[in-house]
Design a protein around this nucleic acid. Structure first.
Lengths: 332, 332
DNA sequence: GTGAAAGCGCTAACAG
DNA sequence: CTGTTAGCGCTTTCAC
């Protein structure tokens, strides 16, 4: 394991071994320009013999066009973001791009730091989550010289490409669904809203729709902790302890909703007769539960792949609304 | 959005603006070598004015030492691997390293391709999942000139650094636990074993322990699909349809086990009186369920952070066994 | 303490 | 079709 011994061959060494010039090796390896079959054979032979792996660092510097794409997501703890990454990967792998990811932990300062670090690699594009960024982060992205895509949210002003859906609308649809089913005493269980701006927008849309119907949230339980199944279970327990007269609860997302569902199972609260549950995201687990949980399904893989594709295909700046879908389940 | 216009400043431009030489700018920016306070001020001013972001591509090429770390995981669909990435990130972010990730989809051919692509960026280290690789992938890693860490599994021969635990042992512990509780008619529900070699090792350890006790698996249901909650639910349903006399079921992981748990809820199968369940991973959801599911908890974040730390700290090649922990739950 | 010069390994015009 | 010549933007001696 002797590292740092530069056992790795260079293009010049391949050229010498093959008895051709460096540029011929370069042409052969990238299949561009023209070269004879004989030259190709000799180059390939030398490459195999030396175990040559082209140095992309040097290649990128020389050609001034990187095949790197930076992606920043707020978390990987929620399966939502890994799915977005899968979409990004699906669109990128085929075109020979490398993806590097950064986790912002829902922290705009950290996002700014990550963006600066990414830009140092001169990526062809940077894909970020959401439309809210620190002013400096926005400026860096706008002046980076590369493409920028903002994913998941469309409620606001974008920098370049925006792919997502309206969280306000999703919240409103959720509220109208509960109202249409006759629920009137509705509570809310959420997590650290200060950082999850999209959950905040959903709640705003939800409350606006309630208001239109002459209603208001009866009570809300918001934990400062990150979203998790346990946070949902405990959140609902606290909420019910305070406001036992609820007939429905809106959860900030499906993780929390599953936690609430588990609490109802444990406490033998009949769903939806005694209490209706509504989530957000459309996770597998919400659908696979004995009672599928009512939720909003979002096309996460599509968001990732669309953002990546548009950012790398020279398309003009635009906003793409991929929409969402109400999944009724049996909990309302 | 005019891309490709190279609006980005270079170090030479900063030097001119600051009225100093390029090497002084370089020294100031990295805080190495010596320079006057006055020089530093002028450089910092010019950097701010021009919005200069150092080009790491050029820097890496010139200094022949990259701060890139490549990580390959088989999937992001299971929260296990994002957690490993979190561990890696925690260890790396502090030291100014950039993380590259690749998703192999449990496919050794694809892993090989990803490794080749990563090596082209001359990473300081490559972290891969498991000990099974194609011969070429192994050779590339061994000859890369950088450090290699193999994560999660220690049952086999490593290339350089190995951080994980024994899946065979985990399977054996699971079996002995069920046996000690008096279960004798045990079934298995798993997913595509051809690709998930670690699940295969766990099953091998499980069956070996059964055999030691003079027992054998009564029946097994293995779906070719990837692991999911629904696969676990359907798998258990099929298994019970064929082998209704089981008193316990071992699942390849907690996703499948939760699916099995949901099936029992839906079919009103009493746990553990009519059927005991045992999983693997120690996911939050298995713990937060109304009945916490018996499982093996694994230190995933620790694995990621340890692997990253060792790979970058000049430590000699070694195997680190981080162990695992039996979590009894209430399902056995 | 600081600048000039020489590359890092590759690509991209050029001639030939 | 192919080799030579310049760099890409930075770090790193090495004199001054």
């Amino acid at each position: 394991m002797d590292r740092q011994i530069k056992a790795v061959a260079t293009l010049a060494e391949v050229a010498t071994a093959a008895g051709v010039g460096a540029s011929t090796v370069s042409r052969v390896l990238r299949g561009r320009g023209s070269f004879s079959d004989k030259a190709r054979e000799r180059v390939m032979l030398a490459v195999a013999k030396l175990g040559y792996v082209p140095n992309r660092i040097a290649g990128t510097l020389a050609s001034a066009g990187s095949r790197l794409v930076g992606v920043i997501v707020p978390s990987l703890a929620n399966i939502v973001f890994p799915e977005i990454l899968r979409g990004v990967g699906a669109a990128l792998d085929a075109s020979g791009h490398q993806t590097f990811i950064g986790i912002s932990d829902y922290d705009l300062e950290r996002e700014k730091t990550l963006i600066a670090a990414m830009l140092a690699w001169r990526p062809a594009a940077v894909l970020v989550t959401g439309l809210e960024h620190s002013p400096q982060a926005r400026a860096m992205l706008a002046n980076s010289g590369g493409r920028v895509a903002e994913m998941i949210d469309i409620d606001g002003d974008g920098i370049d490409i925006v792919v997502g859906f309206s969280h306000r609308a999703a919240g409103a649809v959720s509220a109208r669904h509960l109202i249409s089913r006759g629920y009137r005493r509705i509570g809310y269980v959420g997590h650290d809203l200060a950082h999850d701006t999209r959950a905040t927008k959903r709640l705003a849309g939800f409350e606006a729709a309630l208001q239109e119907a002459g209603l208001a949230l009866v009570d809300r339980e918001v934990t400062p902790a990150p979203s998790s199944i346990e946070a949902g279970r405990d959140g609902l327990e606290h909420l019910l302890a305070r406001a036992p007269v609820l007939d429905a609860v809106y959860f900030a997302n499906d993780d929390l909703a599953v936690g609430g569902y588990f609490l109802c199972l444990a406490k033998r609260i009949a769903i939806p007769d005694e209490l209706a549950l509504f989530g957000f995201d459309g996770l597998d687990i919400a659908r696979a539960a004995p009672q599928p949980i009512a939720t909003i399904r979002t096309p996460r893989i599509l968001i990732g792949s669309t953002a990546a594709r548009l950012a790398l295909s020279g398309e003009p700046a635009q906003v793409v609304n991929v929409g969402f879908e109400l999944s009724e389940g049996t909990t309302t």
